[in-house]
Design a protein around this nucleic acid. Structure first.
Lengths: 137, 137
DNA sequence: CTTACTGTAATAATAAACGTTACAGAATGA
DNA sequence: TCATTCTGTAACGTTTATTATTACAGTAAG
């Protein structure tokens, strides 16, 4: 699984817990244990899809833009990782009936798998993630 | 997705189409477009789990050992790729409530996702894969 | 006893992921 | 106005994961 997906979850969860002030990429990076530039790259995607707002300059940062019960993990998966379940098959032998067609068959199967996983991920909103985090305490 | 999974599917599909003779790792590698040693490594796993039989020496090779309607993609996923859906989170900040608990929460969620995907993959047996390959013709 | 295989370890090459540096642009406040 | 603190990106370097390759022991057949 693409780790941008988990960084997106992590970032949004943090932002959801700070609903009334801007959080900087440095602070989020500190919590997630990765480099701030990477966080900014992921947040740039989230902003493009309307999950968050950002503000440049002194006192700027990122803030959650939507209702945390309306954002689910499937939304985030589609934004950060769609298609990554798909295995990267090497070019196989076109002379062989299996080699020639396996790629297409697997593509269709994994597309279905991704959609099916989507149904599962839709059940987890950021609110649920926060509840789970609090249960761990 | 782990590419050993797709190599397992590819190999078993080929073997299922040659039920009455041994296939060599060279022949399978040729069809799949990868190195024979890699195929032997994957087939070694499949043998360990009883999906195939092998024979060394001249005239040897690999042959399917089970009913092709009884082997499904979830069996193969478990054999080759179990746990690979799990993202590898970096060590996050234990001082932060989110950083300290996110890893455990995500682990549980992705474990559920894998099980859920299992239900989908169980619907595809090697027989179904072969049917799909033939439909592509 | 040679040839054609599997089985597996070790190493080399390649590709993907990730971290780091650099710098432009925007907002703030002194 | 100008220093400071942010975002936004591109470019580059480093590390890690994946894959290919080499090497060789062991087995069976003819």
């Amino acid at each position: 699984m693409n780790s941008e997906f988990t960084l997106a979850i992590h970032s949004l969860t943090l932002l959801a817990l700070q609903p009334d002030r801007m959080s900087t990429s440095d602070a989020i990076a500190e919590s997630a244990g990765v480099h701030p530039v990477r966080i900014r790259k992921v947040l740039s995607l989230l902003k493009k899809h309307g999950f968050i707002k950002s503000k440049e300059g002194n006192g700027g940062g990122f803030i959650f833009a939507l209702d945390l019960e309306k954002v689910n993990l499937w939304d985030l998966y589609k934004t950060t990782s769609e298609g990554t379940l798909q295995p990267k098959c090497p070019e196989s032998n076109e002379q062989c009936i299996v080699g020639a067609n396996m790629q297409r068959v697997l593509f269709a199967i994994f597309l279905g798998a991704e959609e099916h996983m989507g149904e599962y991920l839709k059940d987890y909103t950021i609110k649920e993630v926060i509840d789970l985090i609090n249960q761990e305490q």
